[in-house]
Design a protein around this nucleic acid. Structure first.
Length: 329
DNA sequence: AACTAGTGCAACCGCCATATT
DNA sequence: TAATATGGCGGTTGCACTAGT
C-alpha cells in the first residue's frame, strides 16, 4: 500500500511550463509568498499543476538570483571536493554555491564533471597494461555503487562549510541531525571538544582543518583532482602526520573498505601505492590510529547527560560510530 | 538530406523526514 | 500516539537539440 498521491494526476498538467504559468506563479509568490503550503498554492492561483511541481519550478527556475550554466573553475573545484568528501548530497553542495540549485549541480555533475574526471581517468587507464575498463556504463555503475555504498568514512562536519560563519550552519546542522546528532541551545558549532579532550578547538581551528583538506583539491586545476587520488606519491604522508594529503585519505578509504571497492580497480592500479595485502588480512585499522594521517576527525562530544552541560555538536550515543564507521552499519 | 547517437537539462517519481491533526 | 499531509531530497526519465555519418 503506497501513500495517496499528493494530487490527482489525471487533472494536473505535466511537462514543460509555459511562460504564462511561470508568470502566474512568479507574480503570486512575489506578492504573497508560498503561504507555507505548496499543495494548496496551484488552486489559489488557478494553475492546473501539482503543488510539488510548482515548488520545483520556483526553486529551480523562477526564484530570484538563480544562476544557470556557466560553472566557473572555482565552482567545479568546490563541487568536486565536496562530492569526494560527502558524496551526492546535492542540497548541501548547493548550499555552498550561491545561486546554484541542487538540480543544476546534480545535472552538471552527471553530464559534465563526472565525465571530465572519470573520462580522463579512463583515458589514462586505456594506455596502461593490464586491467581494462570497457565501457562508460562500467564507470557509471561504479559511481553508482560508490553512491549507494560510500567507501569512505563520512566526515561531513568539518569538510562541508566553505566559510565557518557563526550563523549559517543550516546544511551542516541538518546533516548532523540526520546522522543522529543534536544541537545545544545556542545552536553553534563552537567550543567543540573531542571525547578524549585532546583537541579543544575553536572556529578558526576548524576553519584551518577544513581548509587543509579542501585546499588540497581546490588549489589544483580541476583536471588534476582525480590524478591526485590515484597517482603514486612518494611521500603520501608528511612527517608530522598532518591531514594535508588527499592521497592518504584515498588510501585509507581503500585499505579499510576493500570489499566495497570491487569493480573500482580502475581507481587503484596494481602499480600504485596501495598495499592491498595489508588491507584484506583482517587488519582493520583503527580510526584513531589512522586518523592523524588521513583527515581531521571532527572532535565530537558524546553526550551522557542529554546535552545540557556543554555547547557544541552533541551526538547521541551510537551516533559517533555511525559517523566514523558508516560501513559497519 | 536523412538518420543515428550523444548531450544537456527540465521535470517527474518515489522515498523518507517532519509537521500537523 | 497513530495516522495523515506536506516538504525536501536524490535518482531517473523524456525530450529537444546538436554533431557525426
Amino acid at each position: 500500500m503506497g501513500r495517496a498521491p499528493c494530487c490527482d494526476k489525471n487533472n494536473v498538467k505535466r511537462g514543460p511550463w509555459s511562460p504564462e504559468e511561470d508568470a502566474k506563479l512568479k507574480s503570486y509568490i512575489e506578492q504573497n509568498g508560498t503561504g507555507g503550503n505548496w499543495i494548496a498554492l496551484p488552486q489559489k492561483i488557478g494553475l492546473k499543476r501539482c503543488g510539488k511541481s510548482c515548488r520545483l519550478r520556483w526553486l529551480n527556475y523562477l526564484r530570484p538570483n538563480i544562476k544557470h550554466g556557466g560553472f566557473s573553475e572555482e565552482e567545479d573545484r568546490i563541487i568536486c571536493s565536496l562530492y569526494i568528501s560527502i558524496g551526492s548530497r546535492w542540497s548541501i553542495i548547493a548550499a555552498q554555491l550561491p545561486g546554484r540549485t541542487d538540480n543544476d549541480i546534480k545535472n552538471y555533475w552527471n553530464t559534465k564533471l563526472k565525465k571530465k574526471l572519470f573520462g580522463k581517468q579512463r583515458q589514462k587507464q586505456g594506455s596502461r597494461k593490464g586491467k581494462e575498463i570497457n565501457s562508460i556504463s562500467t564507470i557509471s555503475n561504479n559511481i553508482n555503487n560508490m553512491n549507494q555504498n560510500p567507501c569512505w568514512p563520512e566526515l561531513p562536519i568539518m569538510q562541508q562549510p566553505i566559510q565557518f560563519s557563526n550563523n549559517d550552519h543550516t546544511s551542516i546542522r541538518k546533516l548532523l541531525i540526520k546522522l543522529g546528532g543534536k544541537f545545544s541551545e545556542n545552536d553553534q558549532l563552537t567550543n567543540v571538544v573531542s571525547p578524549n579532550s585532546q583537541y579543544p578547538i575553536d572556529n578558526s581551528s576548524m576553519q584551518l582543518m577544513y581548509q587543509n583538506h579542501i585546499n588540497l583539491i581546490s588549489s589544483s586545476p580541476i583536471d588534476n583532482v582525480f590524478n591526485n587520488m590515484t597517482t603514486p606519491n612518494t611521500d603520501p604522508y608528511n612527517m608530522n602526520g598532518e591531514a594535508s594529503n588527499f592521497t592518504a585519505e584515498f588510501e585509507h578509504m581503500i585499505n579499510n573498505h576493500q570489499q566495497k571497492l570491487d569493480g573500482l580497480e580502475f581507481l587503484y592500479e596494481d602499480d600504485l601505492f596501495i598495499d592491498k595485502s595489508a588491507s584484506t588480512s583482517g587488519g582493520n585499522l583503527d580510526w584513531e590510529s589512522m586518523n592523524p594521517y588521513v583527515l581531521p576527525l571532527p572532535p565530537i562530544i558524546v553526550s551522557n547527560d542529554g546535552g545540557n552541560s556543554q555547547q557544541g555538536v552533541i551526538l547521541q550515543e551510537g551516533a559517533l560510530d555511525e559517523l566514523r564507521y558508516p560501513m559497519a552499519q
